[in-house]
């Protein structure tokens, strides 16, 4: 499954980082704690969070996640958007809350 597939199936909006839309998705990780993601997320996972500041993209890039999804339609900061473009890691947005979105992504990845 690719990032483009989950965008279509989960009805996500692409905010930035279109260069990485063909990234392969191997799983998901849901957390708003940066050290938790640093310590426990894996390469290729999609990271679901409500954090919108640029450190999210720094962590996303260091961990080489497939994409970041911001929940509840929250708006990303300008610096987050530019870093997503620089790193080529898609920054996506969903209107759903964390619980619903994580559940839908789980179902999609584990049919």
């Amino acid at each position: 499954m690719k990032v483009t597939d989950i965008i279509e199936k989960l009805n996500l909006k692409v905010i930035a980082g279109a260069e990485g839309l063909q990234n392969k998705v191997t799983g998901g990780y849901t957390s708003d704690l940066l050290s938790d993601v640093m310590g426990n997320a894996d390469e290729g996972q999609v990271w679901i969070t409500l954090q919108t500041h640029r450190n999210v993209m720094a962590v996303a890039s260091l961990k080489e996640v497939a994409a970041v999804i911001i929940v509840k339609g929250l708006e990303a900061e300008e610096s987050t958007i530019s870093q997503s473009n620089n790193e080529g890691i898609p920054l996506l947005s969903s209107d759903l809350e964390t619980f619903e979105l994580s559940g839908q992504l789980y179902q999609l990845l584990h049919p």
Partner: peptide, 16 residues
């Protein structure tokens, strides 16, 4: 509020 301060940084350093 930024999502730091979970008290996981030093344990992560030890593990890695």
């Amino acid at each position: 509020e930024m999502g730091f301060g979970a008290g996981m940084g030093l344990p992560n350093m030890k593990r890695n």
